[in-house]
Simulated assay, not measured.
Amino acid sequence: MPLPIRGRLGVLCLAALPLLAACTSDDTDDRRPVAGGHPSPRMTARSAQVPPELDAGETVAGRRGATSGNADVPYERGRKGDALIVAVRCQGKGTVEVSVPSAHASFPQKCLAGEVSTTYNQLAVGGADRAGTVAVEAPSTVRWSLTVGRGAPVRGESPGTG
C-alpha cells in the first residue's frame, strides 16, 4: 500500500500485509517528524560514500558502503517482534530499486545529480526477524550506500490512514 509522499523526493513503499511501514525522505539536515512518527537521524556525513546512520535504540544488521550498479546486501537475524529498517543513501541521476524478498517488499528511490538523498523504510511484518538479503538495482550513474537495521516497530500512522 502506498504511503503519502513526503519531502521533495517521492517515496513509495510496497509490501505484503500485515505491514506497518514508515518511510521518510531526508533531503535536509533537520529532525522533522515523518510518517509513523519516525524522525530522520541528523546527518553528519552528507555523502553517498557513507552508509546512513540509524536512530538511537536501533541496531545494525547489515551495511554496504559506496557502491555503483547492482548488489545484494545480506543482513543478520533479529529479535522476534523487531521491525526491519532499510536506509538507502544515493547521489547521481537515476532510480535505485530496492527489494526485500523475505518481507515481500520493494521501493524505488529517485536519485538526483549533485544532491545526496537518504530514505528510511521500516517494515514490521511477520518474519521480519529472519536473516535475509536486500537486493539493490541501480544504474552505474548512481552512487549508493545502505544500512539494514532492527528496531522497535513505530506505533502510530499506518499505511492508508491519515
Rank of each mutant, 00 (worst) to 15 (best):
A71P: 00
D30E: 15
P101R: 13
G114R: 12
R42Q: 13
C23I: 01
R77C: 10
V88P: 00
C23H: 04
A83V: 03
S25R: 03
R77Y: 07
V50S: 09
G57H: 08
D29Q: 05
T67W: 04
P33R: 09
P39I: 12
C90K: 05
A105D: 13
D72A: 11
S68D: 10
A83Q: 05
T118P: 02
G65M: 02
L19Y: 10
G92A: 09
P39K: 07
L54H: 13
Q49D: 12
Y75C: 02
P51D: 08
Q91C: 01
G69T: 10
A66M: 02
T118N: 02
T44D: 15
T119L: 00
D72S: 06
D55H: 15
D27G: 10
A113V: 06
A35E: 06
E115A: 10
R89D: 00
H104A: 15
P101H: 14
Y120C: 00
D27T: 06
D29L: 04
S25I: 03
L112I: 12
H38P: 01
A48K: 05
G94M: 06
A66T: 04
A105W: 11
G36Y: 04
A22V: 03
R63S: 12
R42G: 13
T28E: 10
A21Q: 03
V88F: 00
P51C: 07
T67L: 02
M43C: 04
A21N: 04
I85S: 06
V86R: 00
A71Q: 09
R77V: 13
F107D: 04
H104K: 15
K80C: 06
V60M: 11
D30M: 11
L84A: 02
S68F: 09
A66E: 06
E115R: 12
C23Q: 02
Q91I: 05
N70M: 09
A113G: 06
E115M: 13
R79A: 15
L54A: 14
P39R: 10
P108G: 04
V100F: 08
R32V: 12
R77T: 13
S106I: 05
V88T: 00
T28W: 11
D27S: 02
T59G: 15
R46N: 11
T44S: 13
A87N: 00
G92W: 07
A61S: 15
A35I: 07
V73N: 09
V34P: 01
T44N: 13
C111E: 06
